[in-house]
Amino acid sequence: MQKPLNSASKYGTPQALSDPRWLRYAAIGITLVIIGLFLVLPLVTVLIEAFAKGWSAYAKALTQKDALAAMRLTLLVAAITVPLTTVFGVSAAWLIARFDFPGKNLLITLIDLPFSVSPVIAGLIYVLIFGAQGWLGPWLSAHDIKIIFAVPGIVLATLFVTFPFVARELIPLMQEIGHEEEEAALSLGASGWQTFFKVTLPNIKWGLLYGVLLCNARAMGEFGAVSVVSGHIRGLTNTLPLHVEVSYNEYNFVAAFASASLLAGLAVFTLIFKTLLEWKQAGKG
């Protein structure tokens, strides 16, 4: 595929397209101010606040019992949801990128649906099914099964909000790669699984990894949906973002920002990985 030549970005601006100097400087100025105030400053602030009372207070905040419990729960939730969302994403992407069938566009829209639903509603729907007054509530309490205000509810809510993450990365990627290489593998005698693992997977691995990382970042960082179903039980159903909220509301800013710094670190790591991936691909093209 030949990209149209964008002379402005590659070879500097041609004479006819150069904007007045004041305009260029103003636009660059606005961009830098916005990025500085909105993106750089918040990241810096997280660190400043986290270390406001020194390294030892930071370390202590992260090693207290509730913080450790929140970290464990966050890791557990991610460990359950990320593989499920990944398997679903690969399956949906294979289906959508490799086959034509009626209702395909509707399916794509439905997969995207959780993106446009408020996280609070994502939590609410599970409360309405599994909560004490929900449909299955009486049956669940009769059998002593807890879903809402317990770990299963948190997992379900996280599954909902991370639902499209992997599929969304893979569908356009697999459509762009096309299916000729897979046909070649099949014509050479490879089985379906052999074709997937030896041909498809190596081709989509970076996109898949990025989708998994995004999914993981959301799974570990989800706040609204989890907040509805968790019940905020200290040491039991508080994930790291909920621990941030609770600590902040108790004016324990060091604890709040120490936990926040971990989550911000995860976000920065995800961004760095994404950027490296884009540079790698740009270098190829």
Partner: peptide, 26 residues
Amino acid sequence: IGFVFQHYALFRHMTVFDNIAFGLRV
């Protein structure tokens, strides 16, 4: 059958050697 695709459909992540060996290895 042996099929040669119009745009070749060589496996882009494999060397020439691994491409040719593919059918034997699967």
